[in-house]
Design a protein around this nucleic acid. Structure first.
Lengths: 105, 105
DNA sequence: ACATCAATTCGATGATTAGCTAATTATCAA
DNA sequence: TTGATAATTAGCTAATCATCGAATTGATGT
């Protein structure tokens, strides 16, 4: 999990993940979105792969990267969960707000 | 938001935040949980403060650090939201609880 | 076989980071 | 005022990191 947060600490890598959200993309197509050299992008891909946030599949001359959403999800929700953080507006359970059980109302 | 993810990239700092989840704590008490020097911990606190993840309040000789949960929440949920990731488990919002009428229970 | 293209690895460089000890600041008590 | 305590700042080192150009690997087409 540490490798995931390390991977997420760089804005370029976070943006790569967001690009991959729409679907798999080749290393070259991904690199075209950034103002850094291809070797630099390749290093970023390696970090993301090491963190298991993406999977790489070779397709002819290209390498297709695919987002591993469940890994990202587990890391984010796992950490957020340790703080009682819940998504989509439901920040608190009934119990934690009212300290009242359903059976008592 | 970049500073938040930068801050979260270090395991010591993540653990500090988790310790602060229980409530505010002094720099010394926090440092006692780790096997690094106090100046090193002080540097970690500075990073967390810079990311606005904690607030510092001076109390006599001590400095009390307090978790700013909403900042952590906004960063985590904001990023997760961009991927359609949402936590599961919380069924009710605060509003739906506080707006419950007597006639409905 | 050779040229081309996509991607990575190699090797180097400047910047950032985490860590330390020692010194400094600030507060409180005797 | 002196001494003790809590925390930070100063100054440094070693390690990691993002970045580059050049070289290399691997696949495709002529």
């Amino acid at each position: 999990m540490n490798s995931v947060f390390k991977a997420l600490s760089d804005p370029t890598r976070r943006k790569v993940l967001e690009l991959l959200r729409k679907g798999p993309m080749s290393a070259g197509d991904l690199a075209a979105h950034f103002a850094v050299s291809k070797p630099t992008m390749s290093a970023h891909f390696a970090v993301l792969k090491e963190a298991d946030l993406v999977a790489a599949e070779k397709d002819g001359k290209s390498v297709i990267y695919r987002l591993k959403l469940s890994v990202l999800e587990d890391a984010l929700l796992g950490f957020a969960g340790a703080f009682g953080i819940q998504g989509k507006g439901a920040q608190e359970t009934i119990q934690s707000v009212t300290q009242t059980k359903e059976s008592e109302i």
